[in-house]
Simulated assay, not measured.
Amino acid sequence: MTETEQNSSVQETKTVLADASDFNAVHALNSGWTLWFDNPSRRTTSVNWTANLKKIVSMKTVEEFWGIYNNVAMASDLPSGSNYHMFREGVRPEWEDPANANGGRWGYQFQRSIGEKVNEHWLHTLLACIGETFESSEDVCGAVFSNRKNCFRVAVWTRNAGDRESCENIGRHLKAVLGVNHTLEYFPHGGDSKSGSNAVYTV
Results as ranks from 00 to 15, higher is better:
Ala99Phe: 11
Ala99Ile: 00
Phe134Glu: 06
Asp77Phe: 09
Ala101Leu: 04
Val118Ser: 07
Gly107Ser: 15
Ala75Gly: 12
Val91Leu: 12
Phe87Ala: 11
Met74Ile: 02
Val154Ser: 00
Glu132Gln: 08
Glu116Gly: 00
Ala101Phe: 03
Val154Gln: 04
Arg153Lys: 07
Trp157Gly: 00
His124Ser: 09
Ser82Ile: 07
Arg159Thr: 15
Arg112Leu: 12
Val62Tyr: 14
Asn150Gly: 09
Thr125Cys: 04
Arg153Asn: 10
Gly115Ile: 09
Arg153Val: 09
Val156Phe: 03
Val140Lys: 06
Ser137Asp: 06
Phe110Ala: 00
Cys141Asn: 12
Gly90Met: 09
Ile68Arg: 01
Thr125Arg: 01
Met86Lys: 08
Glu63Asp: 12
Gly115Ser: 12
Glu63Arg: 08
Trp66Ala: 15
Ile56Lys: 03
Glu89Val: 03
Thr133Glu: 05
Phe110Gly: 02
Ala99Gly: 00
Asn102Gly: 03
Ser136Asp: 15
Trp106His: 07
Met74His: 02
Val57Gly: 02
Asn70Pro: 01
Ala155Ile: 04
Ala73Val: 10
Ala161Cys: 07
Val91His: 15
Val62Ser: 14
Val144Asn: 00
Phe87Cys: 08
Leu78Met: 07
Gly81Pro: 01
Leu126Ile: 02
Trp157Ser: 06
Ser82Pro: 03
Met86His: 04
Asn160Cys: 05
Arg148Pro: 03
Ala155Trp: 04
Val72Tyr: 01
Val118Phe: 09
Lys149Cys: 06
Val156Tyr: 05
Ser113His: 13
Glu64Ile: 09
His124Asn: 08
Gly107Thr: 15
Glu64Thr: 05
Asn83Phe: 13
Asn100Arg: 06
Gln111Ser: 04
Gly67Val: 04
Ile130Phe: 14
Asn83Trp: 07
Leu126Pro: 00
Glu138Asn: 15
Phe110Cys: 00
Glu64Pro: 01
Asp139Glu: 12
Tyr84Gly: 07
His124Gln: 12
Lys60His: 12
Gly81Leu: 02
Gly81Val: 00
Cys129Pro: 09
Tyr108Met: 04
Asn150Val: 00
Glu89Pro: 01
Ala155His: 08
Arg148Ile: 11
Met74Lys: 08
Val118Tyr: 06
Arg112Thr: 09
Cys141Ile: 11
Ser58Ile: 12
Asp139Thr: 07
Lys149Phe: 11
Phe87Leu: 13
Ile56Gln: 04
Asn70Asp: 03
Phe152Ser: 09
Phe145Arg: 07
Pro98Asp: 14
Asn70Thr: 10
